[in-house]
């Protein structure tokens, strides 16, 4: 419901604004829930490539309210950013892309390049806390 309200109020942000991150956080939360089951999740680690157009701060903010009131409430989100890189088919040079995201080879100027990293959006690990196991360990 909170997410729906945010959507309505931010619809004017035609660039996608935070809505993009909200949507991605929902997909991420679903994957985390599948992996964690009933256990409490303390932290979620995700690797995000530069071409996924995610604003880390927006992602962190979106995460807090996407998980609010769910079994993931309170779980910290740790984001590892992976720079985008291209490799030239003509000269073989690899270029890491900065804020200027032209896809032409910086070495020879060729337009025939392949993206070799930057499209990642991967849930890499979760830290869980299982109350049932605490009980077991103490018994």
């Amino acid at each position: 419901m909170v997410a729906a309200r945010l959507w309505n109020t931010s619809r004017g942000q035609v660039k996608g604004g935070e809505v993009h991150e909200v949507s991605l956080c929902r997909s991420l939360a679903a994957a985390v829930t599948r992996a964690a089951g009933e256990r409490r999740v303390e932290a979620v680690e995700v690797s995000i490539g530069g071409l996924r157009q995610v604003v880390p701060d927006a992602m962190a903010h979106a995460w807090t309210f996407v998980v609010r009131g769910t079994t993931l409430d309170g779980a910290a989100l740790r984001i590892t950013s992976i720079p985008a890189a291209i490799t030239c088919d003509d000269c073989g040079a690899t270029t890491e892309l900065g804020p200027e995201l032209g896809f032409d080879c910086r070495s020879c100027g060729s337009g025939h390049t392949r993206v070799t990293s930057g499209e990642e959006f991967t849930l890499t690990a979760i830290d869980i806390c299982d109350p049932a196991r605490v009980t077991k360990g103490e018994s």
Binding site: L24, T122, A125, I126, D127, I128, D130, V134
Partner: peptide, 17 residues
């Protein structure tokens, strides 16, 4: 350590897409 604290880390590597 999970035995004492109930905490553990699970490696996943799931592509969200």
């Amino acid at each position: 350590s999970g035995y004492q604290t109930g905490r553990e880390r699970i490696e996943i590597l799931e592509d969200i897409y």
